[in-house]
Amino acid sequence: MILCRCEEVTYETVRATKEKYQCDARELKLRTRAGMGYCGGRVCRPLLDKISQNKNERLESQVIPLKYQPPVRPITFQRMQGDHHG
């Protein structure tokens, strides 16, 4: 079952990686590339969060586990380089 469509990462891969390395959401993302595609994790982010955290960890945290990075929407390289001038 595919979790991350952009990078075509399956649930099985993410689960196995989690079991093997006992990693947090960020490491899980870096190891599997899930959440690193075109959509910026719009679809699979909540799923990665759920796989990588247990409930108690969630309750204590005041920060979202997977950091949001600008740009939060896909933009062209031209726009990124030129920003508003482009």
Partner: peptide, 16 residues
């Protein structure tokens, strides 16, 4: 779920 990505960019604290 609340779409709060822009708030996250400001460093605003969150509650789950």
């Amino acid at each position: 779920y609340p779409l709060a990505e822009l708030a996250a960019l400001t460093g605003c604290p969150f509650l789950d």
